[in-house]
Structure formats: C-alpha cells, structure tokens
Design a protein around this nucleic acid. Structure first.
Lengths: 197, 197
DNA sequence: ACAAGATGTCCGAGCACTTGACATTCGGAG
DNA sequence: CTCCGAATGTCAAGTGCTCGGACATCTTGT
C-alpha cells in the first residue's frame, strides 16, 4: 500500500514542486525554467516532463499544492470559532493575512506575464471558491441548522467573492475587512435564522 | 553530485536500518527477520539482500551506524572542554551515560544469541577504539602539545579500555567512573607535561 | 534574417526493484 | 528418528523509471 517506491515518488514530486515554486516566486512564470527545476532537484529534464507533462502542468501543480495548504490554514481558523459570524470574521482575516504574505500570490499578481498566471489564478480561484464553499456551508449548518441552506450558501458566496476581490486588489488591513464583512453579513444571517425557528 | 537518486538510495538504506535496528532492539539478533525488515520498509526481500548481502551484513551496518552516532555524540562532549583532563572526564561520562541508555547495546549484551552479537561487539569495539583513539589523541595534542605523542596515546588507550569494560560490565554511575578515571590519569599527564616543557 | 535559448518529443540503454521459484538449513512436533 | 514448517540465501526473467542525447519548433534579441 505504502511501499518505499510510493514514498519516493511523492518525495520526488514534492521536491520538484519546491524547486519550481522557488523559481516562480523569484522570477514569475516566465522565470521558471524546466531545466533549472531539474538541475536543482538533481534529476534529468525528461523526468520533470514525465511528472508534470509540461511547463503548464508544473504551474498547475504548484498552485494546487499551495491552494491545499492555504485552505487547510483557513479552515483551522474557521474551526476555532463556534459562532458562524465569528468564524466568518476569523476565516476572512486569516485568508487575507495569508494572501498578503504569500510570495506565490505576490508573484502571480505582480508579474508581467499575467496573461497566463492570472488565468491560473482565476481557475484556481474557482476551485478555492467551490471547496471553501462546501467547508463554510457545513460550518454554518452545523452551528445554525435553522438557517436555510440557500441563505447560507448565498451568504458564503458573497463573502468569498469579496475576499478574493481584496486579495486581487489589496485594500485595508485584513482585520478591518473582516470586521466590515462580518458586520454587513451578520444581520442577514440573524434575520434568516429568526424567521426559520 | 547529489542527485535525487543518490538521496533516495541513502534514504532506502537508512529506513532499512531503522527497521532492522528496531527489530534487534526488540528480539535480538535471532529476532531479526529479513522478510520483516523488507515488509516494514515497503520493499521486497530481495532488495534487502541486494543492499546488505545477508543477515550478517544487516547487523554489521546497524552497528556501524550506531557506532558513528555514538562517537559523534561523545566527540561533541569532548570538544566542549579545552582542558584535556576535563575533556577526558566529560567524554567518559557521556560515553557511559549513552551506553547505559542505548537499547541496541542493551540488546547485544543481554541476548542469548550473544555468540554472534558479542563477536560483533568486539570487532566493533576495535573500530571504536581506533577512531576514538585518533580523536582523543588529537584533542590532547591540540591543547597540551608539550606532552609526547606516546604518553598521550598510552593514556588514551588506558582510558578507552576502562570505559569499554564499564560498558560491558556496568558498575558505578557514569559521573563517578569519569571522576575516578580523571583523577587516576591526570597526574600522569601532568607530570609528563611538566617534564617536557 | 540569423543565432541563441527554451520548450516539447522520441527513443535506446541502464539500473534498481519486483516477482516467483528453488535449494538449503535448522528446530520442533509427531 | 523422521517429517514439516519457517527462515536464509540464490537465481533469472520481467518491469518501471530515469538518463542521456538527438531533434523539431518557437520565441527573442541582435
């Protein structure tokens, strides 16, 4: 099930991604060289192609891994709160803080070759949106089951889009945005809750 | 130079040794099963044979690695002291403490199949003796260059044999033995030093 | 227009692990 | 005592992955 070969394969992939991510954070998508990734990992260029198919595949994989980590972290912040409104605020603040400090996001947003990187960001954004949607939805329905599914979904959807907007176009500090968003959305949730006891 | 393949090879060897060492510490040399080592590492039995040649090779390798670690640790204790006598005491104490807490040594000394394990211990002991000899010698000559090489070597030799004896046949606490040894040997070194200014 | 550098593709050789089979040895049960 | 099971050790064929090199293509700067 988990042979040494399996672990080695995962490790190879991980180290390749480390090298690639480092390159991207330094020079953006254009600064990413397949040969460089191979050299840094101590592997032949062909191996990189075998693993990811091509340069685009590398970017995809790097983004996927980083997304995973990002969501894991945000979920942790969310799970610490029992009140959905507090959870919303905490998750939003954490997400914006992380995004602001993330070199990969920084590189993706500031690079000139954004015609491709930004495209990735949007597709990635879709996945993030879907995954986060599910997670947040579950959280709301767990603690406030009386809120209709549709209302919860809508509220979460709005919050997510605002957050993504703030990531793409940085504005006030994370805590401020989080508080604002919580203040704006809480009445909606509270009323929906009150109407469906 | 340090390709991914190289690292993987080292890791394989290391994980095999981990599994083998664990087995030995549990059931001694007889309790060590080649098939078990292979299974625990997630590798075929043949691979274990390819790596170590046979069961004896596994034991050899486990002992060699543990010896390496042992000496590294003792050397660290030695290096912390500038005065050779203090260094001697510190190294002796550390060695005895480590030996007393080492499951591998415990297994080697207490197992019934000592007809083979003890043989390993003695050959290993030779190597330890030689390596430690060099290291200690260098330490003495670095801080007390006026002591003749022969005197330093003799002193170190005596200390090492006493230490090994105390490992094989546990006696007083490490600190006591270390202090005793230091007290016994320090006059010899001091006089030798005084005579060769 | 040309040269340089990078991506992407193909293929043959080589290496290490796997799999399965078999001989051999040892210790315990009948 | 003999037989059987378990473990060590050995061998050969099969397999997967990587390597190294060659080549076509595309972009970029000169």
């Amino acid at each position: 099930m988990d042979s040494f070969a399996d672990r080695t394969k995962r490790r190879l992939r991980d180290e390749l991604l480390d090298a690639a991510q480092d390159a991207i954070e330094t020079g953006g998508y254009d600064g990413l060289r397949m040969a460089e990734v191979a050299r840094r990992t101590g592997v032949s260029r062909q191996t990189v192609y075998n693993e990811f198919g091509g340069k685009w595949g590398v970017l995809e994989a790097v983004a996927a891994r980083e997304t995973e980590r990002f969501l894991l972290d945000v979920n942790a912040a969310l799970a610490e709160q029992s009140d959905p409104i507090d959870g919303l605020r905490a998750a939003v603040e954490r997400a914006l803080t992380l995004a602001g400090a993330n070199p990969l996001i920084k590189a993706a947003l500031s690079q000139p070759g954004s015609d491709q990187a930004s495209q990735l960001l949007t597709t990635r954004g879709q996945q993030v949106l879907e995954l986060a949607q599910l997670r947040l939805d579950a959280h709301v329905r767990e603690h406030w089951p009386e809120v209709p599914a549709e209302d919860a979904t809508n509220c979460v959807d709005v919050a997510l889009r605002v957050v993504i907007s703030h990531i793409v176009t940085p504005g006030p500090p994370p805590a401020v945005v989080a508080a604002q968003l919580a203040r704006v959305l809480s009445p909606f949730l509270a009323e929906s809750r009150r109407l469906h006891v």
